[in-house]
Structures are given as structure tokens and as C-alpha cells.
């Protein structure tokens, strides 16, 4: 029994009590897990799951420019990323409105340009090690400034999300109702995209620009297998993200692997397991439903 406790302590607690960088990474990861998954839930429900991915690539040139101008400074790189992300989102939106083409094709074009520009900028200045840092993150580099930044972004995101929650929900279901009420859907959409870019830039320190979107989308898509209610989806997504961040960090510590991919892979495993045996829409749920007896719906069968 004592052996078990000692092993558990060595695996789960000791890395956090022994090393300050692990504690910082954990707090950063948990803060991100509070803010990013609710955004992911809305992205998923709006059929924009891949837009998050596109935006994660789009922030790269800004991050790279911050890196070229100020070295490995988180505020500079985050600000650069934020500007680049908003610029790409704005450009894609305007080109789509002007040409009448679908927004996703404009978004794809701009993020590819953006990505190439970003990789070019980093390689002009730094080594491939720097590029790896920017692309995949590094928990060792999380300092107090980074923590403050992540915590502020997470708090601001939750606050703004709470303020626009009702509008966002109604806009997702029936945008015309909202337009009829005199609310501009474009404004809500813009604020939402802004929040997303903000979270991606806050997340890249821990997870890297390419992985940051994983903590947003995977918990959301996983939660879909377990809940059919919006509150349930959001709560579960946050929980899954928190468990993945903590689990992923510990795995990366013990096996000496990069933290970003570890965290996302743990979330990925949760997704795969849920797809197999979740409560709604999973493989197992489908098999079970096929075996269940016929259900009659009293309300639709009511005689007129």
C-alpha cells in the first residue's frame, strides 16, 4: 500500500512540488483549459471546427515578427500574433463579402500565405531550434509574465463570453431572428473570432502555435459524445481539457517528451475512446440503439 502511494506521489505529485517550471506550466495549462474549450464548443456547433486550425497558422507571421524584433519575448510575440490573426480574419471576411466567395476559401488562402511568411521570417533570423520553440512551444520558458498574460486572457475570455453568451447562442441557431431584432450578427462573429485569436496567442507558449488549437477543439469534439446540452458540452470540455493538460504535462515530464504534443495526444486519446464508447453517436451507442426495441412517440402519433 505504502509502495503504491509512493509510486503515485512520484508520478503525480513530486514533479509539481519539486519543480517550479512544472507548477507554472500546470497553472498556465489549467487557465487555458478554462477559456479555450468553450470557444471550441461554439466553433464546433457553428461548423467552423477547421477555422480554429486556420487561425492557429495565421498567427505565425505575427509571432515570428515579434521574435525577430524582440527576441524570445512573450508579450512581443503575443501582440504580433494577435495582430496577424485579426488581420487574416478581417481580410478573409472582407474578401469573402466583396467577391461573394465562401469565407472558408478566403480564410484558407490567407492562412497559407501567412504561414509561409511566418516560417520564412523565423528562419531568416533564428535557428531551427527557435522555429521548433515557436511551432511546438516549450514549458520551460513559461515565466511570470507569461503566466500573467495567460491568466488575463483566460479571465477576459470568460467574462466576454458570459456577456455575449445569449447573443451567441441565438445567432448560432437562427441568425435571421437576431437580424430581425436589429442585432448585427457580424459584430458578434467578429468579437468571437477576436477571442479565439487571443486564446491561440496565449496558448502558443505552452503548446506552440500549431498545437494551441488542439486544446480548443479536441475537448469540445470529445464532449459531443457525452452530452447533448450546451451547458453540459461546455462543462465537460473544460474538464477534459484540464485533465488532458495535467496528464499531458506529467507524461511529458516522465518520458522526456515535448509538452504540447503530449497534452494534445492525451486529449486525442480521450476523443478516440469517446468515439468508440461515448454515450451519444459513438460506435457503441449505435450498436446498442440498433438492438433496442422500437420506440413510439406519443406526441407525433396523437390523433387529430
Amino acid at each position: 500500500m505504502l509502495d503504491l502511494l509512493t509510486t503515485l506521489d512520484a508520478w503525480l505529485i513530486a514533479p509539481l512540488t519539486d519543480y517550479a517550471f512544472m507548477r507554472r506550466a500546470l497553472v498556465g495549462g489549467l487557465a487555458l483549459s478554462l477559456a479555450a474549450p468553450p470557444l471550441g464548443v461554439f466553433l464546433m456547433l457553428r461548423g467552423m471546427s477547421l477555422v480554429g486550425d486556420a487561425m492557429a497558422h495565421a498567427v505565425l507571421p505575427g509571432v515570428a515578427l515579434g521574435f525577430v524584433l524582440a527576441g524570445f519575448s512573450l508579450p512581443a510575440m503575443s501582440l504580433g500574433g494577435l495582430i496577424a490573426g485579426l488581420l487574416v480574419a478581417g481580410l478573409a471576411g472582407s474578401v469573402s463579402r466583396m467577391t461573394g466567395h465562401r469565407e472558408d476559401s478566403a480564410m484558407a488562402s490567407f492562412y497559407l500565405i501567412s504561414l509561409a511568411l511566418g516560417v520564412m521570417l523565423v528562419s531568416l533570423r533564428g535557428s531551427s531550434v527557435d522555429l521548433t520553440h515557436v511551432l511546438f512551444g516549450s514549458i520551460l520558458a513559461i515565466d511570470d509574465t507569461a503566466l500573467w498574460l495567460i491568466a488575463s486572457v483566460a479571465s477576459a475570455t470568460l467574462l466576454v463570453l458570459a456577456l455575449i453568451f445569449r447573443v451567441l447562442v441565438v445567432e448560432c441557431l437562427d441568425p435571421l431572428f437576431l437580424r430581425g431584432q436589429g442585432i448585427r450578427g457580424g459584430l458578434v462573429h467578429g468579437v468571437f473570432l477576436g477571442l479565439m485569436v487571443l486564446n491561440l496567442t496565449a496558448g502558443f507558449q505552452t503548446l506552440g502555435t500549431l498545437m494551441a488549437v488542439g486544446l480548443m477543439m479536441l475537448p469540445a469534439t470529445t464532449a459531443r459524445f457525452w452530452s447533448q446540452r450546451l451547458e453540459g458540452l461546455i462543462g465537460l470540455a473544460i474538464l477534459i481539457a484540464m485533465v488532458s493538460s495535467t496528464g499531458g504535462l506529467l507524461v511529458s515530464y516522465h518520458l522526456g517528451l515535448p509538452s504540447g504534443p503530449c497534452i494534445i495526444l492525451v486529449a486525442g486519446i480521450a476523443y478516440l475512446v469517446s468515439a468508440l464508447c461515448g454515450r451519444y453517436g459513438s460506435l457503441l451507442a449505435r450498436v446498442r440503439r440498433r438492438a433496442a426495441p422500437l420506440e413510439t412517440d406519443e406526441h407525433t402519433c396523437k390523433p387529430s
Binding site: L173, D174, L176, G180
Partner: peptide, 27 residues
Amino acid sequence: KERRAWLPQQLALDLTFPMSVEELMLS
């Protein structure tokens, strides 16, 4: 504007959105 209501064709709504009857009506 607030008292003008439009019931669109059903296909115009995203029915995969997890919203209950109560939430729809309260909106």
C-alpha cells in the same frame, strides 16, 4: 423591429444545435 416576427422555413435552422424547446421559446 422587435415586434416583427418571421417564421422561416424549417430548413433554415441549424437543428443540430443543442437547444431545448424552453430555451428556444424564451429567446
